[in-house]
Simulated assay, not measured.
Amino acid sequence: MKPLFLFSLLFLSTMTNAQTNLVKNGGFERDIVNWQGDVATISPYDKKSGKNGALINQFVGTEWKGIDQIILIPRNTYAVEFSIWIKTESIEGGKEAYNAGVMIAEFTNNAEKQINSETVAQIRGTTDWTIYKKAVKIPADAQKIRIMLALAQTSGSIYFDDVKAIPLSEEEYLKLNTVSTTSQN
């Protein structure tokens, strides 16, 4: 009876971890706690859910203004599904495609040297709250993910809420990609 109980406990904890959000304070309910950078403010008025959202403004200039969070990739993670709710106002853009409001996932090694980066969202203009999702296979040798939320060398306002990074098994990743490919045909 005892081995069955231990197996059940292990199985339940594995299932619970499978859908765990790796991003800490992704809803900005605790101010900007767990996020690096001092350019974002909390907005209790413009949010998708909960009591707060985050806001980055840049009215003049074309600086990179962003916040980021570094997260460890759990063992046996094949891929990660990133999602975020974003609202924008008057994002002008620039000469380069990346001059926009962005969410970028940068995969790094243990020394935080970049291996690869993936753009999850890249927005210009004015938009209402929109969800952006992207499932990304973990590159070889990646140990960490740096999630960046920014106005990438452009002016405007961008609001963020409900930032998530959910670890996926190979089966979950393949199932998501099969659904995505089928729905596009």
Rank of each mutant, 00 (worst) to 15 (best):
134 K>N: 05
89 E>I: 09
164 K>F: 00
164 K>A: 11
149 L>P: 03
165 A>F: 02
96 E>H: 15
138 I>L: 03
156 G>I: 09
94 G>C: 04
163 V>Y: 05
89 E>S: 14
116 N>I: 02
155 S>K: 14
110 N>T: 10
93 G>M: 06
98 Y>T: 06
90 S>M: 10
72 L>C: 04
154 T>P: 06
75 R>G: 09
77 T>Q: 02
158 I>M: 15
58 Q>Y: 13
61 G>F: 07
105 A>M: 03
100 A>V: 02
57 N>R: 15
88 T>M: 08
130 T>C: 00
76 N>C: 02
83 S>E: 14
147 I>H: 04
105 A>F: 02
137 K>R: 13
167 P>D: 06
144 K>E: 00
139 P>H: 10
129 W>A: 11
93 G>Q: 06
64 W>A: 10
79 A>G: 14
135 A>M: 11
61 G>H: 01
70 I>S: 14
112 E>F: 00
144 K>Q: 02
151 L>K: 05
138 I>E: 01
97 A>K: 15
115 I>P: 04
108 T>C: 00
126 T>Q: 05
142 A>K: 06
163 V>E: 08
158 I>E: 11
118 E>L: 08
163 V>R: 07
65 K>F: 03
85 W>P: 05
123 I>D: 09
130 T>A: 05
120 V>P: 05
108 T>N: 02
133 K>Y: 06
104 I>M: 12
149 L>V: 04
117 S>P: 00
153 Q>A: 12
118 E>Y: 13
141 D>V: 00
140 A>Y: 01
137 K>Y: 02
151 L>Q: 08
90 S>Q: 14
138 I>G: 03
132 Y>E: 07
64 W>F: 15
101 G>R: 11
136 V>E: 04
165 A>I: 03
133 K>I: 08
104 I>P: 00
68 D>Y: 11
114 Q>N: 10
163 V>D: 05
118 E>Q: 15
122 Q>Y: 05
74 P>M: 09
72 L>M: 07
58 Q>F: 13
161 D>S: 08
131 I>Y: 00
75 R>N: 15
57 N>K: 15
133 K>Q: 13
55 L>C: 13
144 K>N: 06
110 N>D: 12
147 I>P: 04
74 P>V: 11
56 I>N: 08
161 D>R: 10
162 D>M: 11
59 F>N: 14
95 K>A: 15
67 I>K: 07
59 F>I: 14
100 A>E: 00
157 S>I: 10
129 W>L: 07
85 W>C: 03
164 K>G: 00
146 R>Y: 06
117 S>R: 15
118 E>H: 13
126 T>R: 03
156 G>K: 12
148 M>D: 06
161 D>Q: 10
120 V>H: 03
123 I>A: 03
